[in-house]
Write a protein that binds this DNA or RNA. Structure first.
Lengths: 338, 338
DNA sequence: AAAATGAACGTTAGCGTTAACGTTAACCAG
DNA sequence: CTGGTTAACGTTAACGCTAACGTTCATTTT
């Protein structure tokens, strides 16, 4: 039962230090108006009393906060962890704290989070992607708070936007596959509508094959609990259904699951089947056969996005929308078809 | 320039609805004291005006919040994402919001986060592990806020504790290795002091081998940017330095890096070398050769921890410390030595 | 009919902090 | 010694909301 007595407030510190409340406030905040001698004395007493300022009172008084709200689809996987890392580093060094939430790919969950977050008067809000409830957009447009949409790209963001063009990424993969002579493409993803960006990449891929070859892109969308298993199961499904000569995956982890499926079935890659991942994840760095994938500059994206948002918060004019470059990394899991 | 005008406050809603501020407050909070008819009318107007309550003012008035602060070492990897998932689900359904932060394994960063967080008057605080700055412990003990330490285990937590005994986990791995006849063990980890839990597992492993065989456990601790690469590089280092017959890893991802290193060098597992991971990660579900590893019930741990903390918050008596079971999963990367 | 009830609503007094402003004393040039 | 400047404080009024208590008035009870 050690934890009992009421926490000290600024008034208590002031009383104990024989100064006014304001001197304590100034000392704590490190602003002008107290002599160095008194400041040290006050800080010593505050520490002794384990005084902790009340941020609610502060934010109420100054009508703002140094919180940045960040909404992500999920914590699973490296992708959002990388973006997050870039953002957080930038915000931290600018004196902002970030509060993070995941939507598990549900726009409804996103809306309820936006509502909760807005009630805390944050300095800025970051959403992942462009797929929001109409009310989310209304709320955010009506509020004076700067909003960043990250990871995806559009010319008409809620406020500002930093990300990559996923449709274009799909086209790049398609171009690569077509130029290597592949003819029977397939795609492994999560259930439709779950990950809108992946759906856009598939659309880009589809359009290239439709135009260049007049071919359909088959797709498998199993629900398998984790990316590796999804890749494995989706590959099995596609191999059972037909005879694709190249399979593209939502990301490198799924692609690895696909590789394992091929290995199990005695198929050799890239002789029997081409494999293309996405995102150039850490896993790929130790694979004996270099994976064909697309590099996305996620950390840079986080830093860029955060920087843009900070500029916006500080009233500095910023570009509405900033696309980041993509690069297809040819590996040893695809090769020119004879 | 759509975003301009001041957000509405409760007073504005009251004026527009021709009722008192209190009626609006009651309507919004869904408590008794307003007729159904008025409540609907008020809510309609509030929605029209895009009214968002001010949580700072609310928390200041009621002197509490429904925030739970969660501190994790990192967002990288499945481990903390799993624990987090379990916790968040539990808190969400109990009406609490969680604010998450990562320390990147730095107790100093943890302390500064604890200070920041305390200023928001959270309902509870969760720290990962037991390795804190003395001042962190002082601050938390002095505050009336319930504290949960998760992932590691001790009989003398700051407040309450839910986790696994990492030293014991190391012993289990040691017992397995000894009983299979392995004699030249090694361990791949991150730099010492970085991950205290991993250091404890290594200590458990060391003690078993010292007692049973009088043998040292070699260790490699490369800094390679990601787990897979760390496993790969650490394995290379150990194979160059001596001739271990079994290598244990900080986690399954490192173990996979190790497997890739062996494959590259033409070593076969488990004939030439035993490989042991930790945490039974998703990756392992698609490997052709089942990995010897230790199962940790991370999601359950999150749920259990959150439940215990909620009980503590609601004044229900709880056990100080709750250890979760461990299970060594024998795989095909270790086998009895002749 | 008077009195008692209770639901529906309003009024008041904070919650802990800071911005804005007022006061005081010390200092300095002329 | 005057008048003016400035550093170092203190005082007060918000900030937006809610708990606790008051008031009103239509019902019911006696």
């Amino acid at each position: 039962m050690t934890k009992k007595r009421q926490p000290a407030k600024i008034e208590d510190v002031a009383a104990r230090a024989n100064v006014s409340i304001m001197s304590v406030s100034r000392a704590i905040r490190g602003v002008d108006g107290v002599s160095e001698k008194k400041r040290r004395e006050i800080l010593r007493i505050a520490r002794e009393m384990k005084y902790v300022p009340n941020s609610n009172a502060r934010s109420l008084a100054v009508a703002n906060s140094n919180l940045i709200g960040i909404s992500l689809p999920t914590f699973a996987g490296e992708v959002f962890a990388d973006i997050l890392n870039g953002m957080r580093r930038t915000f931290d060094s600018a004196g902002y704290s970030s509060v993070i939430d995941t939507t598990e790919y549900s726009p409804e969950a996103e809306l309820s989070w936006v509502r909760r977050l807005l009630s805390w008067q944050p300095a800025g809000i970051i959403l992942t992607g462009l797929d929001h409830q109409p009310e989310t957009v209304d709320l955010l447009r009506a509020s004076p708070i700067p909003v960043l949409e990250i990871w995806d790209h559009t010319d008409t963001p809620i406020d500002i936007c930093v990300g990559i063009d996923h449709y274009r990424a799909g086209q790049m993969i398609g171009d690569h596959a077509v130029s290597f002579g592949y003819r029977r493409p397939a795609f492994v993803s999560t259930p439709r509508g779950h990950d809108t960006r992946a759906d856009n990449r598939l659309a880009g891929l589809r359009d290239v094959f439709a135009r260049e070859r007049g071919t359909e892109v088959l797709s498998a969308r199993p629900q398998s609990g984790n990316s590796f298993a999804t890749g494995f199961d989706g590959t099995a499904e596609l191999l059972d259904a037909g005879a694709p000569d190249i399979i593209c995956y939502l990301n490198d982890h799924m692609a690895f699951g696909g590789l394992m499926c091929c290995q199990m079935r005695g198929l050799s890659v890239p002789q029997d089947l081409g494999i293309v991942g996405f995102n150039q994840l850490d896993l790929a760095s130790v694979l004996p056969r270099k994976l064909t994938t697309v590099r996305t500059l996620r950390r840079l994206m986080g830093i860029t996005g955060a920087t843009q948002l900070l500029a916006r918060i500080n009233g500095v004019p910023t570009e509405k929308s900033k696309p980041l470059p993509l690069e297809l990394i040819p590996g040893e899991t695809t090769r020119a078809q004879i």
